[in-house]
């Protein structure tokens, strides 16, 4: 039975890490539905959120293999713990003077906002969980979606479900190397 699994990982911010991570998905032919990478509050550490469409066995396999990577610091499978997710989409939709107000009304329901308006189209920004974004996109479809882009899902555990528990430990070489470069 396939399901959606949100897997988050803290990784060292170094060249080649992304390649190592996505190779874990490529090897058994798993599809990454969404992948986001960004810096954390510490420049040497990046955080990834991966969304996998697959079986529980697939998710466990990915977790096991990610943990083997030297530059992956921690891995968590969000399913089973309370967590929040957000995605962001920009949707460029056809808008005529007749349809514009109807579109804006729909945007209101989704707390979406217009970030660009042209003669025959507008660009809408929507932030929310994936179903919300897909919901709005569905409603806008009849008006004519010209193009759409999504930032990808980011996830964080609620309350004391903390991924970044290794704050005091950073890589010896990065630290030493940085010191030598500075001196």
């Amino acid at each position: 039975m396939t399901n959606r699994y949100a897997i988050t990982a803290l990784v060292e911010n170094r060249p080649g890490v992304l390649n190592r991570v996505v190779s874990i998905f490529r090897r058994p032919g798993l599809n990454l539905d969404s992948l986001t990478v960004g810096r954390t509050d510490r420049p040497e550490v990046s955080r990834m959120t991966m969304v996998l469409e697959g079986t529980n066995a697939d998710a466990q396999h990915v977790k096991r293999e990610l943990n083997r990577l030297i530059h992956v610091i921690t891995v968590e499978d969000m399913n089973g713990t309370p967590y929040v997710t957000r995605d962001l989409a920009l949707i460029k939709v056809r808008a005529t003077p007749e349809t514009k107000s109807e579109i804006l009304q729909m945007c209101g329901h989704y707390r979406a906002r217009v970030v660009d308006a042209a003669e025959s189209s507008i660009v809408i920004e929507v932030v929310g969980e994936e179903p919300e974004i897909e919901g709005l996109a569905g409603l806008l479809k009849p008006f004519g979606i010209i193009e759409m882009v999504r930032a990808g899902v980011v996830a964080m555990g609620r309350a004391e479900n903390i991924l970044d528990t290794h704050r005091e430990r950073s890589s010896w070489a990065l630290q030493r190397f940085a010191l030598e470069k500075a001196s």
Partner: peptide, 11 residues
């Protein structure tokens, strides 16, 4: 030659 403890937080 570095001799300090090797710390790899992910290993």
């Amino acid at each position: 030659y570095p001799t300090d403890e090797i710390r790899l937080p992910g290993y």
